[in-house]
Amino acid sequence: MSGAQAPSLAPDAVLGGGALLRGDALVAGYDRPVVGPVSFTVAAGEVVGMAGPNGCGKSTLLRALVGAARLFGGRLERAPGLAVSIQNQQQPPLDGVPLTGRELLALTGASPSGLPPWLEHRLDERLDRLSGGQRQYLSLWASLGSDAALVILDEPTNNLDPAGVAHLAEALRTQAAAGRAFLVVSHDADFLACACQRRVAVVPRTGDGA
């Protein structure tokens, strides 16, 4: 895949065992704990999946990793100087905003090179004139093409058709081979099996004192 890029912002150093990010017994939530304890590590060149039932707090955990939700317990270690990119499940509204796919990619410095053919020729159209799957893929590509050494993806296969899912899985594998790390939450077990080297189970938190 020609669009696969090695991260240009490598961290200043890595943690023990080559990890870029390590969570140990993390408990996360907003007003109160909703998920955890969860432990995991992600090293350069790895695609790590997180799976669990709906509502178990996978998205909350991901947001806590970048400070957008609260950590109630556990220990989070991040390699010094690590640049992280996160693709949220909830996208900001695009309707009525005259932004093209090419302009969206330019915001994160992502190159259009390597995009699937069904998107390449629509790059100069407004995003609100594309399908939900096409918008989702462009938004993913903007994260994948950024300079981050670790990319966090929350339900990246939402709205994607089988061709899009296959293209994404291939992109993750290729970019991981080039040294980038991925942490991916998905309810799509087939996608995780195809794209990830390791999987971490996230289970619902039972009871407040759990």
Binding site: R63, G67, I86, L107, S139, A142, A148
Partner: peptide, 17 residues
């Protein structure tokens, strides 16, 4: 301009860094 647009379309972009 770029920071304003990025903050709008990728709300956690800056925080993640």
């Amino acid at each position: 301009s770029r920071a304003l647009l990025t903050a709008h379309f990728f709300p956690d972009h800056f925080r993640a860094r």
